[in-house]
Design a protein around this nucleic acid. Structure first.
Lengths: 229, 229
DNA sequence: TTGTCGGCCGATCGCCGACAA
DNA sequence: TTGTCGGCGATCGGCCGACAA
């Protein structure tokens, strides 16, 4: 998986230690994962183990498209564990709603409304997304319309009809959108991430909504485009 | 799973050793399963181990509905291994196209034609199946029609509309059939098994076609109702 | 007896502008 | 600017008898 695409799908809040950086391994974390009831075991008081990151794999679940990372850790002796090189994270200077700068992945994320996910198969494209990450339309045409071929994290290409119509005018994805929603099993509250890596390379990713209380409030009363954690 | 239903789904050619019968365990079989390349290892010449069947579980795959059995084997010393009780199989005196006898499961299996699996959502019910396993229709009605509620191996109930119509007359399953085909992901060449256990208890099972060379010939040039192996 | 086909009717899908938040 | 709604036209699913193997 392309590291730039992986990071854009994961979002700015996800930080992965860089290769050969030094980290602490907490056995307690593993124990919690495998058996929540063993929290009060002898392991929970075990000391953290100094390690060096010996391998980093950026991966994506083949079913859900959710991104995750495999980290291999090599224990090292504490005396070599200087804080100087402690936990160096990869470059984290990108943002979800990022304006374009040279040679960077332009990204836009939107939380799906019920209309995006349920209704007649369309997607309301926020103006900023259409302007900054979609290729420009020919506004002399009536209506302005184009086909978008967008690659997901597995390399599968999805095609969408992008049209600018209605009164007042707005950007929409029509044909192809509902196939994507069904294929990825998206529901209101999930997010979709559009990325443009170069002038003719577009990518699309998904983020599942946290704690899925399907049927309850979908995406909170906060400001538009920002997910409540 | 009801043993009678399990056996009807598996078919007459499947034989399961009965509980506490004596069998030989061939380690070679396990090795082939886990690693085909190790056929020429020291295990392949290991002697078969005399065992007694200490547990039998008749199960069905929750996804594919395919039936399978779990057998627990207890090794025993060879001197106790008399051939008198060797490999006693369960009663195997039923057949797919069985005529009714008292207190038995009446069974009928049919290989799906392309029309059954692909076309307008209908299923051609062979005359013998309608007569012997389906409840009788009221032939005074025009057309004769009834609802069938049939249970699959997981206990899920499917309902079908059974109608006798057309010129010449024939038995058909219409409403409900395509939902079943899609739900079980059946294709032409797969089989469906209808069973009647008592006057108001019907069951339905599926058998997947062997080696799935989808798109090639579906169910061979043999006589109708017999699958080529 | 039963597998396949074309017809046809109704349900659903999905594109559309109107409106309002 | 954009989320939701009702409309409506096109597509598809699925029930039907005709016909032939």
């Amino acid at each position: 998986v392309d590291p730039q695409i992986w990071r854009a799908c994961a979002g700015a809040s996800v930080q992965i230690p860089s290769l050969y950086s030094r980290v602490y391994y907490f056995p307690q974390g593993h124990v919690e994962h495998s058996c929540p009831s063993s929290l009060i075991s002898s392991f929970s008081t075990a000391a953290p183990v100094p390690c060096v990151v010996s391998a980093v794999e950026l991966l994506a679940d083949p079913i859900t498209d959710e991104v995750f990372a495999h980290l291999a850790l090599q224990p090292i002796s504490p005396e070599h564990f200087s804080p100087s090189n402690f936990s160096g994270f990869g470059s984290d200077d990108d943002d979800d709603n990022n304006s374009s700068s040279s040679n960077k992945v332009v990204t836009f994320a939107k939380i799906l409304t019920p209309s995006d996910a349920n209704n007649g198969g369309g997607f309301s494209v926020p103006r900023y997304c259409a302007d900054s990450v979609f290729p420009p339309l020919d506004f002399h045409a009536d209506p302005p319309v184009q086909k978008l071929f967008i690659t997901d994290i597995h390399g599968v290409v999805w095609d969408f009809r992008h049209i600018y119509r209605g009164t007042p005018r707005r950007h929409l994805l029509t044909t192809g959108w509902s196939k994507f929603v069904n294929g990825k099993k998206l529901i209101a509250g999930d997010s979709v991430v559009f990325m443009r890596k170069s002038v003719d390379e577009m990518f699309i990713g998904v983020r599942r909504a946290p704690i899925s209380t399907h049927g309850d409030e979908y995406y909170g009363g906060g400001k538009k485009g920002f997910r409540r954690i």
